[in-house]
Amino acid sequence: MAARREAYANDLGQVAPLVAVTARSNRSKVDQDSAQWLLPSADVLCQYGAEWTAMKVFWGLAVDELERDRLLDIAAGRGGTDVEFTPAP
């Protein structure tokens, strides 16, 4: 389990780009998940939701009910975004 945590913490192989935000937005996020915080720009919300979901599925990370519902809401409001992934080793 420690090796998997280390692999997750050092994963540089994901093709999903980081989304640049202002320092103010970054400070407002802190360590919240998508149930508590979303990007303020609607233009990238679909991309963010798809990439967040792919990362969760790729690493087999837990998703609580509130976070799942928020991600489903994002997906329902935005058609045409596929989430593709290969499970992490």
Score class of each variant (00 low, 15 high):
Val30Asn: 13
Leu38Val: 15
Leu18Cys: 10
Arg68Cys: 07
Ala7Glu: 02
Val44Thr: 13
Val63Arg: 09
Met55Phe: 11
Gly13His: 00
Arg4Glu: 00
Pro89Trp: 02
Trp59Met: 00
Pro40Cys: 02
Pro40Ala: 05
Ala62Asn: 11
Ile74Glu: 01
Met55Glu: 05
Pro17Ser: 12
Ala42Val: 02
Ser28Gln: 15
Asp69Ser: 15
Pro89Gly: 01
Val83Leu: 04
Ala16Tyr: 11
Glu6Ser: 14
Ala62Thr: 08
Val21Trp: 03
Ser34Pro: 04
Gly77Lys: 06
Ala3Cys: 05
Val30Tyr: 08
Gln36Phe: 07
Asp43Thr: 04
Ala20Cys: 10
Gln47Ala: 09
Phe85Val: 01
Ser25Trp: 06
Phe58Leu: 01
Asn26Met: 09
Lys29Leu: 00
Val44Trp: 07
Asp64Ala: 05
Lys56Asp: 04
Asn26Glu: 14
Lys56Glu: 00
Trp37Val: 01
Leu71Val: 03
Ala7Tyr: 05
Tyr8Ile: 14
Ala62Trp: 08
Asp43Arg: 07
Arg78Cys: 15
Ala62Arg: 14
Trp52Glu: 10
Phe85Pro: 00
Met55Arg: 14
Trp37Glu: 00
Ala9Gln: 12
Arg70His: 09
Gln47Thr: 09
Ala88Leu: 06
Gly13Asn: 00
Gly80Lys: 01
Leu72Ser: 10
Leu38Lys: 10
Leu39Tyr: 06
Lys29Asp: 00
Ile74Thr: 01
Ala42Trp: 03
Arg5Ala: 11
Ala9Pro: 07
Glu6Val: 09
Ala20Asn: 08
Leu45Pro: 02
Val44Met: 06
Gly80Asp: 03
Val83Ala: 03
Leu12Met: 12
Leu45Arg: 07
Trp37Ala: 00
Ser34Trp: 02
Asn10Ser: 08
Cys46Arg: 08
Gly79Gln: 13
Val30Met: 12
Arg27Cys: 07
Pro17Tyr: 14
Gly60Asp: 03
Tyr48Ser: 05
Trp59Arg: 06
Glu65Thr: 12
Leu39Arg: 09
Arg27Tyr: 11
Leu38Met: 08
Met55Ile: 08
Glu65His: 12
Pro17His: 12
Glu84Phe: 12
Arg4Trp: 02
Lys56Pro: 01
Val30Thr: 13
Arg4Asp: 02
Glu65Ala: 15
Val30Arg: 13
Val21Lys: 04
Pro40Tyr: 04
Arg68Leu: 04
